[in-house]
Design a protein around this nucleic acid. Structure first.
Lengths: 201, 201
DNA sequence: AACGAGGTACACTGATCTGTAAAGTGTGTT
DNA sequence: AACACACTTTACAGATCAGTGTACCTCGTT
């Protein structure tokens, strides 16, 4: 409930939507501090006045950007999960999370949008709450995927944290390295990790 | 050689040192974009003129900040490794890397300085090369620590990558969460990981 | 005594930053 | 006809940004 409202942007007018999409693209590629509101207005084909009428402040726009980013990520992942054959194992479903990064390289070129935002936003910025909510949602999702068919003896929460940290490390370095080799490597690690788990069934 | 020069700042005058120390503190706490050169000059008790005479540009100063940051991190870690009893296992030595984060909380409050910098710096910024060199040095170090007494059957490089990703994920989230619980958890995961490895000797 | 190096003081440039003021246009609804 | 709404245009405020020019001071070295 709290999380849902934190991760869902308010209803938007057409113009606001265009501003937000433009802001999302620019914020992700160049960072939030590096992009001015004038640039956003200009590139979206709307005016700064509209931007402020709709969003109130650059900080609020940045927070909305993170909400949009979460929404897109979540949708892409759910679509990928839905595409799996019925009865897909927990392992296959968790690996689909990694694939959603390696296969959509354009949207991961600069690493994790949420980590990047947290890196440059002060503690009191409204976007930081969105970042925390997003990360909590990812951990929770991994926990749910793992609890569906895993052995009752395994600690699903701990395993989810392990997979989560591998994922985070790999995605972050996707933004530092020039390629996705760490994502591929992390995927293999998780495959091993969950393979061993299943072997102990 | 290349790496060493990338990670070592040039010799500095006393004033330059004070400017750099001040910049390091402010850049880490608030981000590079968020801190102006006027603030750095003022807080270091020197003038902006001196800053530019010594460093030439803010970009160069930011790159030097990352070099200093790496140097301090490396020294702290070497001291911690030197404090270990002689004949300490690879596991103990790798875990010391994690301890260097959990036990020096002030310098990790905002997560990984290098990841944070990469998040806000454009691809062509000189600091990015320092970030990559630093991360390479960390992976290499882990690989060396692990190869010292591990079983010959294990793939040290792959194990080092695994530990590295857990470390990276945990340190990054140290800057997002309010506590170091993920660092503690990651340390335990590595303990397990290397424990199993030793059990297969 | 001369000189260079490190540093100070301070005014300044030109650009860019977030945010606001004021007045007006077009469209659809009641 | 009246009104709300989304949005426009132009202009501006006030701050801050990185970076420079110039003149001067104080050392230690030669």
């Amino acid at each position: 409930m709290t999380t849902a409202s934190l991760l869902t942007p308010p209803p938007l007018t057409d113009g606001a939507r265009r501003i937000l999409d433009t802001a999302a693209r620019l914020f992700y590629s160049h960072g939030i501090h590096a992009v001015g509101v004038d640039t956003i207005a200009e590139e979206s084909g709307l005016t700064k006045r509209t931007l402020y009428d709709r969003f109130g402040s650059k900080d609020a726009l940045a927070a909305a950007y993170l909400q949009v980013r979460h929404g897109e990520w979540w949708e892409r992942l759910e679509a990928r999960l839905a595409d799996l054959p019925t009865g897909a194992s927990a392992q296959e479903r968790v690996l689909a999370v990694f694939d959603s990064y390696t296969l959509d390289s354009a949207s991961t070129e600069r690493g994790c949008a949420f980590v990047n935002a947290a890196a440059e936003l002060p503690a009191e910025h409204p976007g930081r709450a969105v970042v925390r909510a997003h990360k909590q949602a990812v951990v929770d999702l991994l926990g749910e995927l793992l609890s569906e068919d895993a052995a009752p003896t395994t600690d699903h929460a701990a395993l989810a944290e392990h997979v989560f940290l591998l994922l985070e490390g790999a995605v972050v370095h996707r933004g530092i390295d020039d390629d996705d080799h760490r994502l591929v490597a992390a995927r293999a690690m998780v495959e091993d990790l969950l393979g061993e788990d299943r072997a102990s069934d």
